[in-house]
Structures are given as structure tokens and as C-alpha cells.
Design a protein around this nucleic acid. Structure first.
Length: 631
RNA sequence: GCCGACGUGGCUCAAUUGGCAGAGCAAUUGAUUUGUAAUCAAUAGGUUGCAGGUUCAAGUCCUGUCGUCGGCACCA
């Protein structure tokens, strides 16, 4: 039998394993080899190479290495837990993008953060003890016997239809497909990060297990760098910055209902004004629909039946009302307010609509998940033949918006769910094709999530990537085959017949509140000039000599439409400069004798340490240019 | 909603085994008039989230409750 290895044919010995091959080839980097890969599948080094094909060794630097290491780390965690808590029962323990976790039933024992430290120490011990990790193929009967005291594994075993393998290291044996590295000593640089409750098999009706999260790397440097990044992420937490920069607040009197402070409201207004002007340019008509609408409407839309628990309702004059959790029904009422000709389409109704949803208390999170937020919503009513071009327009608009904030993104297309869906197949196929085709035409790649669409239609989701690499789902374009039927909307075609238009829902930010939260973290509170709540701070060097002039200059800047403020506190210049740095104000200008007498401006830009002196009009020109370029 | 942790001046945090609630920053007042990240001094600021309980005595222990955080579930 022969394999292709390093582009060469290699004849295998009888019963050759990864280990024996490493030995035979006398590979220098043998300690870096984790597993081997045969025809794209990964195997333990101890497993005999069973067929011909493309062969390679996977080393610490290969893309698969991180997952393998973290999967091994989950096993090491379990081994450590078992030795400290012999009665613990194990659920599942996979590697994930951000490391690994293991779901464990500790019985009546309560685990806290101090225990994590103990477990971590035990893991290090077990790692040093260099336990061999060995795999064994077993029958279902044997597997059931091995895990007879663990109802979780038994449940899993009963569902497995192909081969069952178990992995053993020391006295810990786990049900696992593998692959694993040869021994526990490969897991060396790791950290247990947090403790959480997690429902068995993700089902809220089933038992909650204790989940331990951790992450593992091949070097101390990588681990330290990762921990450092976590610290950095904490520093830009929008809740922390929101407090420090005076942007918004939360109150126990309204959990999940954010209060906007003056500076935060400035962000909000800037963002909204800019965004409204872009949408007007693109042919959107702005509307506003009521916050409180009668139950009858929500029954037609289907929300009363499906989301009543998450809606705020009230009784007025013996009639039920609900605070709107969505803007669509209101928008449709406006569409239905008049007859529409095929010539009028597409009609693009936009509403920055303030909605309330009673989210579960445990779901609330700063501005990211709130009970009162504003959707930058729009509903597009168009003809079938306009669908393609409408989507293309949207892609262009989304691209422009996200690029303005320096956010890169990727698109995911979710298609028709297998069983539960409404509408006819023809429309589904046509719409999915239109969404895909528009992406291709726009020249942007997309990922397909088969069967992940809403029951009422396919959608495109936009996943943004921020300045430190985190992914946020914001924008969405959804085709709706449900509401047009329920509200019986139509337009009159050229044959004078009533025809059902296509309805698109679209939001680019998703929620303005959440988007601002994301931008706070993305910019770490140091907003670009056009967007910053305070753009310029004017500091007179000496209050007696320069305050008057500085105040005049500040007034001048304000009259030019700039958000400028004077800092004439009785403090040293250094102290006031520090204040503007802490407030992350883009430009701090210092006014002294020279500036006053020669009409100059000495400025320091946030994030830079040098001071630059220029004529006043050059400074204004520069500021204007920067604002215009949204830099 | 569920599991776990936490809740002390505006902010960040102290307070031995239960034993007089304290500091820095911010604020106010006064002095100082400052050229690129903290001038000096004084003053004021608290029913320790809230409601009960145990105790001679509770920030500390117990019960309940509200809120926040890390996750899970949920996210039209």
C-alpha cells in the first residue's frame, strides 16, 4: 500500500501507524506533530494508516492545531475534575472557536471560582504526569457498560449509529470521536476562564449542568497575548465607556430601558441625521407609526398569537392594546392607506421606529440587548421584476454604511427551512436566487446557511467585524411572504388587476442603540471627528490674558457648526489637557500669546503627542475636510 | 426565565474572627494664572440596593426581593 506524502509516493509497511512512520522517516519536528491527516480526515498517531491517499502530518502551526489542542484540553479538564470530584458526571466537552468547555453534572456540589483555580492546578499536574491518551473501538454494548453510571453519555451512545470510540487518559475515559494527541503533556499553556450554567443539550426544559470554559495555546506567549486581548476588550466595554464618557445610563427603575445622556444623544443624533440623509438620497420616504396599537392589528399580523409573552400590553376603554414590538404592521397600514399603481413601485417606507420587547431578564446586556430600542427599519414594496435590482441597491447602501465606520463584513444567506415554511416553492426559489444573484452581481461572496431562513422567507444577514476582530450581526434583508397575505396588500398592474407586491424588510444598523454600543467598542470611545460628541476643546494658557480671546474663538467655532467647548478652569494647562485626553476629544487647541496675536491655532490631535501650529483658516479647512471625509 | 457571582458617597475601591463606615478621584470654597496627562489647602458628601430576621452589636451572618455581571435558553 502506498500513500502520497510531500508530493512523493511512499510505500507503507505492514501495520504502519503515524508513530512508526515518524520514526522511519526520522522526522526532526516529531514533538510538534499532533495527529496525521489522510484524505482530509484526522487520525491519532497511534492509529494504523488504513488506506491509500493523500497523507500529511498535522503540526502545531497547522490550522487544525488549535481545535485539536483545545479538544484535548477539555479532556484534561475532565480528567482533573474527575480526580477532584469522583462523583462528577460528564456531558459534552468540545473545542470551540474561543477555546473549549466541558458540561459537568457535579451533583449536589456547588463549584465556585476558587475551585476553578484548584482544577487548573490539577490539570497542570496531570499534564506533567504525561498520561498517554489511547483510543479504543468498542461495541454499543461495551460503551453502555463503560458509561452505565452516566445517563448523559448513555443518551448519546444510544443515538450513535456508526462506530463508537472511547479515549482513555489515566483513570478518565470519555466517549469521543477524536482525534487526540499522544499524551496529556501537550496541553501546557491554558487558562480556565469562567463558570456558567448550561442546559443539557441546549434544552431549557432539561437539567442544567455546570459549564467550565477555558482556552489553550501551544506557547505561553500566545496565551498571554490572548489574556491581554481580553483585558483590552474589557477596557473598551461600552458599559464602562458609556459611564466614563457620560454617554448613557441605566436605572433600576427601568431595566433594559436605556437613558441617553447629552453626549450620547449627540452620537445618536449625528448617526441618525447622517443616516436619514443617505436613505432620502436612495428614495426612501420617512414615516412614523404609533407606539400603541390595538390587539386586532396584532392578531392580523400574527404577533399576538406568537409573541404575546414578550409584548407590553394594556387595556384602554375595555379594549386590548399592545406597545409595538415591530414596525411592519404600522408600515403596512400606511401602504394600504392608498391604492398603488405598478408605476409607483418600488415604494420604500423608512421608519426609525422605537419598539419595546419584554426580553427575559437574564438576556439584558448594556445597549446590546435592551427592552426599548430603535430599529432603522424600512419596508420595500416592489414588483417581482424589481426584486433583483432592489437587492442590488441595498447591497450598495449597506456597503457604503459599513465602510463609513471602517467595519468589514461578510454576508450569510439563509434559505428555506426544510418543513416549516409558508408561501409557494416557486416564490421561495425565485427569492433565494434573487438574493444570491444580487450578491454575485455586486461581487461579494456569501455563505449559505441551508434551511436557516425564517418561516416566512429567505434572508441575507450582515456580520460585521470590529477593530479587534469580534463579529456582530447587524444588518438584515428579509423577504416576507407572510404579512402581505395577512394584510392582503396589493398594487394595480398594467392590466388593471390587483397583484400582491413583494415585501422586503431591511435594517442596516438593526438597532440604533446596539449599533452605537458596537461603535463605542469599535472605536474604544475615541470617535472620528464628524461623529464625536465633543469635537474641539479650547484651552487658554492663562485665564487672565487669554480667556476672553479663547472664549471668542470657541464661539466662532460653534457658529461654524462645530461642537466645541471652552475649558477655562483654574487649573494648570497640563491638567486641562489631561481632561480633554480622558474625554477622548479629537482636537485640543491651546491659545496663548502667539496664537492670539498672530491668529494661529496650536492643536493636538487625540492619539498623537505632537503639537502643531497653523493659521486659523488652515485649521478650519483641515477640520472641515476631515468631517467631510468621515475620517 | 435558569445556573453562578456581585451590589459600600457621583466614580474607582478599603473596612481583621460580627465591634465607632474610610481613602483616592470628581464636586464645592479659597489661594494659585499656569505652554501640552494630575498645584496647594479646606469643606461637604453614606439609613452600606431594598425589606425582614439573628445578635448586646450587622457593610460583614440568615431569609426574601430588586438590580448588575458571566453564561445557558430566548432574540419576530
Amino acid at each position: 500500500m502506498e500513500i502520497i506524502y510531500n508530493n512523493d509516493k511512499l510505500i507503507l509497511n505492514e501495520g504502519e501507524t503515524g508513530f512508526s512512520l515518524i520514526k522511519r522517516l526520522d522526522l526532526k519536528n516529531k514533538l510538534d506533530i499532533l495527529v496525521y491527516k489522510l484524505n482530509g480526515e484526522l487520525y491519532d498517531l497511534a492509529t494504523p494508516i488504513k488506506s491509500e491517499g493523500e497523507f500529511s502530518f498535522v503540526t502545531k502551526t497547522d490550522p487544525e492545531a488549535f481545535t485539536i489542542l483545545n479538544h484535548d484540553s477539555a479532556h484534561l479538564l475532565a480528567q482533573a475534575v474527575l480526580s477532584l470530584y469522583p462523583d462528577a458526571k460528564f456531558g459534552i466537552g468540545p473545542a470551540i472557536k474561543e477555546g473549549f468547555y466541558y458540561d459537568i453534572d457535579f451533583g449536589s456540589v456547588v463549584i465556585n471560582d476558587d475551585d476553578l483555580v484548584k482544577i487548573e492546578r490539577k490539570m497542570s499536574e496531570l499534564s506533567k504526569e504525561d498520561h498517554r491518551i489511547s483510543m479504543k473501538l468498542v461495541s454499543q454494548q461495551e460503551a453502555l457498560e463503560i458509561f452505565k453510571n452516566n445517563e448523559y453519555k448513555v443518551e448519546l451512545i444510544n443515538e450513535i449509529t456508526d462506530r463508537i470510540t472511547v479515549y482513555t487518559q489515566g483513570n478518565f475515559t470519555d466517549l469521543c470521536y477524536g482525534p487526540h494527541m499522544p499524551s496529556t503533556r501537550y496541553v501546557k499553556f491554558f487558562k480556565l476562564l469562567s463558570l456558567a450554567g448550561a442546559y443539557w443539550r441546549g434544552d431549557a426544559k432539561r437539567k442544567q449542568l455546570t459549564r467550565i470554559y477555558g482556552i489553550s495555546f501551544f506557547s505561553k506567549e500566545e496565551l498571554d497575548a490572548h489574556l491581554h486581548n481580553l483585558e483590552e476588550a474589557k477596557k473598551r466595554d461600552h458599559r464602562k465607556l458609556g459611564k466614563e464618557l457620560g454617554l448613557f445610563m441605566l436605572s433600576e427603575y427601568g431595566p433594559g430601558f436605556p437613558f441617553w445622556l447629552e453626549k450620547g444623544m449627540s452620537l445618536y443624533h449625528e448617526l441618525e441625521h447622517w443616516w436619514i440623509s443617505k436613505q432620502r438620497r436612495d428614495g426612501y420616504e420617512f414615516i412614523k407609526t404609533p407606539t400603541l396599537l390595538s390587539r386586532d392589528l396584532w392578531e392580523i399580523s400574527g404577533h399576538w398569537a406568537n409573541y404575546r409573552d414578550n409584548m407590553y400590553t394594556t387595556k384602554i376603554d375595555e379594549k386590548d392594546y399592545a406597545v409595538k414590538p415591530m414596525n411592519c404592521p404600522g408600515s403596512i397600514l400606511i401602504y394600504n392607506n392608498s391604492l398603488h399603481s405598478y408605476k409607483d413601485l418600488p415604494i420604500r417606507l423608512a421608519e426609525h421606529g422605537n419598539v419595546h420587547r419584554h426580553e427575559a431578564s437574564g438576556a439584558l446586556n448594556g445597549l446590546f440587548r435592551v427592552r426599548n430600542f430603535t430599529q432603522d427599519d424600512a419596508h420595500i414594496f416592489c414588483r417581482r421584476d424589481q426584486l433583483q435590482s432592489e437587492i442590488k441597491r441595498l447591497l450598495k447602501l449597506y456597503d457604503e454604511v459599513y465602510k463609513t465606520f471602517n467595519l468589514s463584513y461578510h454576508i450569510e444567506l439563509s434559505t428555506r427551512p426544510e418543513n416549516k415554511y409558508i408561501g409557494d416553492l416557486k416564490t421561495w426559489n425565485e427569492s433565494e436566487k434573487a438574493l444570491a444573484k444580487a450578491c454575485v452581481a455586486f461581487g461579494i461572496p456569501f455563505k449559505v446557511n441551508e434551511g436557516d431562513g425564517a418561516f416566512y422567507g429567505p434572508k441575507l444577514d450582515f456580520k460585521l467585524r470590529d477593530s479587534i476582530g469580534r463579529i456582530w450581526q447587524c444588518g438584515t434583508i428579509q423577504l416576507d411572504m407572510n404579512l402581505p397575505e395577512r394584510f392582503d396588500i396589493s398594487y394595480i398592474d398594467r392590466n388593471n388587476k390587483k397583484v400582491r407586491p413583494i415585501m422586503l424588510h431591511r435594517a442596516v444598523f438593526g438597532s440604533i442603540e446596539r449599533f452605537i454600543g458596537i461603535l463605542i467598542e469599535h472605536y474604544a470611545g475615541a470617535f472620528p471627528l464628524w461623529f464625536a460628541p465633543e469635537q474641539i476643546s479650547v484651552l487658554p494658557v492663562n485665564n487672565e490674558a487669554h480667556l476672553k480671546y479663547a472664549a471668542k474663538l470657541n464661539k466662532k467655532l460653534i457658529n461654524l457648526g462645530l461642537r466645541s467647548s471652552l475649558n477655562g478652569a483654574n487649573e494648570k494647562l497640563g491638567y486641562r489637557l489631561r481632561q480633554s485626553q480622558i474625554a477622548k476629544i479629537p482636537y485640543t487647541i491651546v491659545i496663548g500669546d502667539r496664537e492670539m496675536n498672530e491668529n494661529l491655532v496650536t492643536y493636538r490631535k487625540f492619539g498623537k503627542e505632537d503639537q502643531i501650529t497653523v493659521p486659523y483658516k488652515d485649521f478650519i479647512a483641515m477640520i472641515r475636510r476631515e468631517i467631510k471625509n468621515k475620517a
